[in-house]
Structure formats: C-alpha cells, structure tokens
C-alpha cells in the first residue's frame, strides 16, 4: 500500500511537472518522471504475489512474480524512450529560433 502510494505520487509529480514547468525540456523530463511512475506501477503489480522467478524448481512452490506485466511494460519502456528521443530532437530544432525554450513563447510565435 505504501509503495503504491509512492508510485502514484511519482506519477502525479511528473504530471504536475508537465503542467507547471515552463521550459520545454523540463516538461519532457517531467514526462519521463511520469512514465517512470507508470513503469514502477507495473512492476509493483507484477510483484504482488511474490518476488521469485516463475520457473518450477523441483516440487517446492514459491511465491512467484507475475511475468506478464513485466514483459508488457518492456514494450512501453522502449516506446517511451523512442518518443522521448524524438521529442528531444524536435526541441533541438526549435531551440535554434527559441533559445529560451519557454512553451508560452513558442506557442505565441507559432499559433496562427
């Protein structure tokens, strides 16, 4: 329960960072914090029943972790990583004409 609260707090921290931070790079970092929270939540849910590897070892039954969420979240990690890279490339391009990278300024310059 405590861990769950921590994980969700991380997610929310990231979310509010996206809203409250002015700088575009900070927003992207905040998004990464948020996705860290989400990933941790998957791992947490996977480990609810136990921590051991779900491979049979003789007759003994152990409290094992659920491999499915872990496997699934790997995809999300990779996707998150690539999206972040893509965003940073876009930010690099934008920074040439908007060196402060403040989203308000960029928005003002680029909305019709």
């Amino acid at each position: 329960m405590f861990l769950e609260a921590c994980v969700l707090a991380t997610t929310l921290c990231g979310f509010f960072g996206i809203v409250l931070k002015k700088n575009l790079v900070m927003k992207i970092v905040a998004m990464d914090v948020m996705s860290t929270g989400v990933i941790a939540y998957y791992v947490l849910i996977a480990s609810r029943d136990g921590l051991f590897t779900p491979i049979l070892d003789g007759d003994q039954t152990v409290a094992y972790a659920d491999p499915v969420p872990q496997a699934v979240i790997l995809t999300a990690i990779v996707i998150g990583f690539s999206i972040q890279a893509l965003m940073l490339v876009a930010v690099m391009k934008l920074s040439r004409d908007n060196p402060t990278l403040e989203s308000h300024e960029i928005e003002k310059n680029n909305t019709p």
């Binding site: 921590l51 051991f52 590897t53 491979i55 070892d57 152990v62």
Partner: peptide, 8 residues
C-alpha cells in the same frame, strides 16, 4: 550474497 532467488 544471493539476492531474490537463484535467478537473481
């Protein structure tokens, strides 16, 4: 030290 189990 053997953390978690034998896969750890």
């Amino acid at each position: 030290l053997q953390l978690l189990d034998r896969f750890g």
